[in-house]
Design a protein around this nucleic acid. Structure first.
Lengths: 197, 197
DNA sequence: ACCTGAACACCGTTCAAGT
DNA sequence: ACCTGAACACCGTTCAAGT
């Protein structure tokens, strides 16, 4: 609020003439930024799931630059036209993937929650870079975990810390996609049923 | 920092004698709170996936009371013994579910990211309850979405907004579980292979 | 050596006062 | 009527000064 106000050569109070509060302002700014989501797409059409990974990556990449907006988006879902366009695009790809409608309806939430959280996580981490890189705390805790009290952790060992963020991101999205396709919701018609009453 | 310092009848500066910064203090407090995760479990053993839903619910329930700690946990993974115990418990249940180790290794991250994000989302939303409930913004945007520009949104209609948070939470966890079980990682041995070189 | 009062550099929001 | 300076009520962090 104060930085934007300063950029506009006025006091922060003036912004409250146009925006109810900081959350509303954030939502508006975010929706403006989301116009870039579609234009940042790279792969374009090898498969519906690749497209979905690409689409969400584009969204995350934008949000990662603005962790405060990611936090806002997580708590108060945006409602602008560009956000709706993103939801529409996700749903379109899920239908291409033959995901049942009822699964897709609850699946979009999960996909966007994931993409937003990752942006918040990494964006905030980057914003406090250098100050103190305590990312190694958990790392060493896992490496030195006692095999008697933590047998499963010890069994997995280095695998718990393996992989680049990008590879994990992609695998996580694919896992979510696979899950929302395969996980039954109450009211689902069983697969082999020919739907006679 | 300031509230805790006031409770201890001193200035905020004193805390810096014992904690490097606010993030470190948060991590320590959180790990203390996580001792309650195991004792809050309810269902106990109908199936590994039910147990996993229950375990993560317990974690989320605790974190939802302290959104600031949830934010901290999202950005800087805790590394205390109670957090390790939680990770161990999750891994144990995933092994019970016959999830391949390499999938479990990347799956814990996703499960904990989800549980933490939901706590941050709902916790923050509760903390600003009453002030302005603009949760209906997206709701009405989705309901009034033009069927020509947003065909998939219009096709799904009310289903996009259906379901209680609890039902969605459980379904989301189950979807993630299903996905991490079924999504191949590079290096996976194909199922029908009898592993002769 | 160990602790801390006071100050610094920030926030978002409100409201009386100015044009 | 529309805008805003100044103040209010908060943050986390630092550092010189006190015991």
């Amino acid at each position: 609020m104060r930085r934007l106000a300063a950029d506009l050569d006025t006091g922060p109070a003036s912004l409250y003439v146009y925006f109810q509060n900081a959350a509303v302002l954030h939502a508006r700014v975010l929706d403006e930024l989301l116009e870039a989501v579609e234009s940042n797409l790279t792969s374009a059409g090898s498969s519906w799931s690749d497209d979905l990974v690409d689409l969400l990556s584009s969204y995350t990449t934008i949000l990662i630059e603005y962790p405060d907006l990611a936090k806002s988006a997580l708590v108060t879902r945006p409602s602008g036209t560009n956000y709706l366009t993103l939801v529409e695009h996700i749903l379109k790809l899920l239908r291409e993937g033959a995901i049942p409608d009822s699964h897709a309806a609850w699946g979009v939430d999960l996909l966007l929650l994931f993409a937003t959280s990752i942006a918040l996580e990494h964006g905030t981490r980057m914003a406090m870079a250098g100050i103190e890189n305590d990312g190694n705390e958990l790392r060493s805790a896992l490496e030195n975990a006692n095999g008697d009290t933590y047998p499963s952790i010890a069994a997995l060992g280095a695998d718990l810390l393996s992989g680049s963020p990008e590879d994990k991101y992609k695998w996580h999205v694919r896992a979510i996609l696979s899950g929302i396709g395969a996980t039954p919701r109450e009211g689902d018609v069983p697969l082999e049923d020919d739907s006679r009453a």
